[in-house]
Design a binder for these strands. Structure first.
Lengths: 206, 206
DNA sequence: AGAAAATTCGAGTGGGTACTCGAATTTCAT
DNA sequence: ATGAAATTCGAGTACCCACTCGAATTTTCT
């Protein structure tokens, strides 16, 4: 009650259930954006799925744009692919493992594919996210390929940066085809095929 | 004027400017859908671009869906990639040539990328188009790779069908990255890199 | 020239959109 | 318990959407 406190509203943190509610909202938004895209999905759809009014939804995420950004951040948490450097496995194993994991969560893949392409359109809120993500991935994979090259395990003549760019492109392209024809396209097989071409087998110790 | 004509309205073909107008509408729609996607672009946007009322636009294309389908068909005409079999060149040259050509028409590439990913969402009118397109491309390229294999020009151990799937995926993925970072990503370079890995050089005649 | 068909459009329809506002209700630190 | 903040929501705002209807205008064939 000192004069210094005048005008400062006594802040109180969010209530107990708040964080959980935010999570359920994000899950619902994830589904909606994956199924209809950012522009195609509505706040009403999300609110209905949660069993909340649209207004209440906007209490947690003040705009649709904010909701999208939060969903994208949450996606990173789920797949954990934001930090491909931390893997202890080799590049090949970690990529294949993630690709195998992705087969069980087509919704996440769909969200990613749909929003990624949508984001290249005019002033899309996800554009920065995807641009930066691609840059990060290319750099990270390039480093990993360079490491392989230093061990003599990269096919001669292969540029690590080009391989990184191609790996990202191949992966995304395969996922898109897989979403449209899951029975005919095998993402893991495609990635393995590329690695077989680019990285040489570990030299046997004898 | 025989009795057989009774009740049959005397059909008259479209007027002279009609076909040209349809083309200008398709061009405008192409731009709009490329810039905002199918769901994000509106008939009003297209009509404004042509300088026509929305109603008149609907005289030529009775629904937004019809307009999209016509735009996709027109895209095929422009790039001519619907019939990769007809090429007299080899597979490599024809792909590289098309990729080089695409560098000059980012709008067409954007339309393709955006609509392709958007089409995997619920009941999108373009879904059938892209599903069939991918199937056609995979089959066509697989045949071309098989021909190369028969000439001993495919790296041993490479499956033609897998190579076809990967080529399509790589190409699309590179284009997406290129749209987001045109200065850092080189589609042609990426494709050349893949071909260098997969197809062996023509045996010298000596 | 005259008439029918093709083209154009203004006005409207029903519906959805993101988002705001003000007030009621619920939680929780004191 | 009590009061302030957090949460909820009904109602409303302003706008955009695809699409329809009926009528006016323009083109073309006879």
């Amino acid at each position: 009650m000192t004069t210094k406190d005048v005008g400062r509203a006594a802040r109180r943190g969010p209530y107990a259930k708040s964080e959980e509610r935010r999570r359920t909202i994000l899950d619902a938004a994830h589904e909606v954006f994956a199924a209809h895209g950012y522009r195609g999905g509505s706040l009403q759809d999300v609110a209905d799925k949660v069993g909340l009014s649209q207004t209440s939804l906007l209490h947690y995420f003040p705009s649709k744009r904010d909701l999208l950004m939060a969903v994208l951040e949450r996606r990173d948490e789920i797949t954990g692919d934001a930090f491909p450097d931390d893997m202890e496995d080799g590049l090949v194993d970690s990529v294949i493992r993630t690709a195998l994991f992705n087969e069980n969560i087509p919704g996440v893949v769909e969200l990613y594919s749909v929003l990624c392409a949508e984001s290249v359109t005019d002033s899309h809120p996800g554009r920065v996210y995807f641009t930066e993500r691609f840059e990060r991935l290319r750099k990270s994979y390039a480093r990993r390929f360079a490491e392989l090259a230093a061990q003599g395990r990269l096919r001669p003549g292969v540029d690590p940066e080009l391989a990184a760019m191609s790996l990202v492109a191949l992966w995304d392209g395969l996922q898109t085809q897989w979403l449209l024809a899951p029975d005919e396209v095998d993402v893991v097989k495609g990635l393995r095929g590329y690695f077989d071409l680019v990285v040489l087998p570990e030299p046997s110790p004898n």
